[in-house]
Design a protein around this nucleic acid. Structure first.
Lengths: 179, 179
DNA sequence: GTTAGCATGTAAATGGTTACATGATTGT
DNA sequence: ACAATCATGTAACCATTTACATGCTAAC
């Protein structure tokens, strides 16, 4: 049940239309809660029916036409309640680890190449995050909001650092003793 | 499409019934690909129809009665093909990071407590993994299979290490300047 | 023979993904 | 007028989760 709250957060930051939200997701909240326009439109409909958001009066509601939404007080309260909720971490579900485990049984042909490919992808993601950090969070701007947003970004950075480190060691370990 | 392959892997390690698989998932493959008995029964049915596994002749197929499965050659080939496949990493989808981002907008009341709770959970998971490492992977047993399985476990350890580290710093950062 | 637990299964709801459909706007 | 693009939406599918149903087996 996280997508509606992701949308409320994005709308509080700035009232938007469905497609605008989709695009902003692609380069901020979507880094840790990806979503597509289909899902977003569906959720916007539900949120509106629930009285958590509304269409800005300025925009006319016709088919191919822009509809801008804003958050209502009820929506903000819903979001505040959700933030302080107790919710356990999602269990890990990772196909690469699974494939490695399968390779232990049927042989690891082709696996090293795949690990290298993943390493490159994670390095690229790490570089992207570091660039964002440098651009959006220069030292010494520490409002409460910025501190939280920077922590989230730090989470992404540390996570990609974990992957690159682990993959590097895994590749060494597979190549080394085998060749 | 990973669950069938997870099941093939588990069945290759040891032919089992549905419920046995469920239990073994709970303490090995399930650490990085959790599943419930409902899903497992359904997949066993599909895998059997696809000719990837079969019921061991010894077991009679009656309703409340144990049915033991084993992998057929076609199943093993399917698994080998899957191991060397190119498949991008799953995008991250983490509600805690999302809630932190939401807290930047509606205020972080109650968040610090939740972070501490998560820290405790991740520490417990880390301790569990380290125990498994010590028990199942003593130094100097390095068959190819063990090397791969140990790498997978290392992945879990490193991941939990990342979480505990990040959460610790996040809690400091929130508590420190605020009080 | 009744209860407790083991084992297999069905059904419905939720959330996410992929493919497609359609209206409005802008540039040529 | 036509094409390209922006914007909103529908439909079908698939995987996961939750709740429930049913048959077998062993202990009392």
């Amino acid at each position: 049940m996280s997508l509606p709250h992701a949308i409320l957060t994005a709308l509080l930051e700035k009232p938007s239309s469905g497609l605008e939200l989709t695009r902003r997701f692609d380069r901020s909240i979507g880094y840790f809660w990806p979503s597509t326009h289909q899902q977003i439109y569906r959720e916007l409909g539900k949120l509106e029916k629930a009285g958590h958001i509304r269409v800005l009066p300025a925009a006319q509601p016709a088919r191919g036409q822009r509809k801008e939404y804003e958050v209502l007080p009820a929506g903000r309260e819903e979001l505040m309640a959700w933030v302080s909720l107790a919710e356990d971490p999602r269990p890990v579900r990772d196909p690469l680890l699974l494939r490695m485990r399968a390779a232990a049984v049927v042989g690891s042909a082709g696996l090293a190449g795949e690990l290298r490919r993943h390493l490159a992808l994670h390095r690229a993601q790490l570089a992207e995050y570091l660039e964002i950090e440098e651009r959006d969070f220069p030292p010494e701007r520490t409002s409460d909001e910025d501190r939280l947003r920077r922590l989230v970004l730090r989470g992404g950075i540390d996570l990609e650092t974990f992957w690159t480190g682990w993959l590097t060691r895994a590749i060494d370990d597979l190549d080394g003793p085998g060749s």
